[in-house]
């Protein structure tokens, strides 16, 4: 298959995947009835999904679990949580977390 055609077909495939995953359940709408337990469990979906994403990003270095004090990622995450508790500022968390990450990394490697 021609390379350009392949890549554009793949792009359309990923686009279709976005629609299928995000809209299909929404389109079923009220026709789909879920048990009460499932409905109430869904309220915890955002927190759990976010926690899993963040844990993957912060607790691993180069694909391996790293909870040592030489991993700047989770240490910076700790700093970010403290910043949030103190300031309630989202921008503070992002800026402070990144600053902590860069400082710690420079410190560990220097």
């Amino acid at each position: 298959m021609d390379e350009t055609i392949y890549i554009w077909s793949a792009i359309l495939g990923v686009t279709a995947a976005t629609f299928i995953a995000r809209s299909s359940v929404l389109l079923l709408g009220e026709r789909l009835r879920l048990p009460q337990t499932v409905e109430s469990a869904l309220r915890y979906a955002p927190a759990c999904a976010l926690a899993a994403i963040v844990a993957n990003d912060l607790l691993f270095t180069a694909g391996a679990l790293d909870l040592s004090f030489h991993n700047p990622r989770w240490l910076a995450g700790g700093v970010a949580i403290i910043i949030f508790a103190a300031t309630r500022s989202t921008i503070g968390v992002i800026a402070g977390g990144m600053a902590a990450f860069w400082l710690l990394r420079a410190w560990f490697s220097g």
Binding site: A47, V54, A76, G77, A80, T90, I94, F101
Partner: peptide, 18 residues
Amino acid sequence: GLELAGTFALLALLIPLC
């Protein structure tokens, strides 16, 4: 390591949900 900025944004969303 710019991708970490996205992680921190998600972290800021996560904390109040806990």
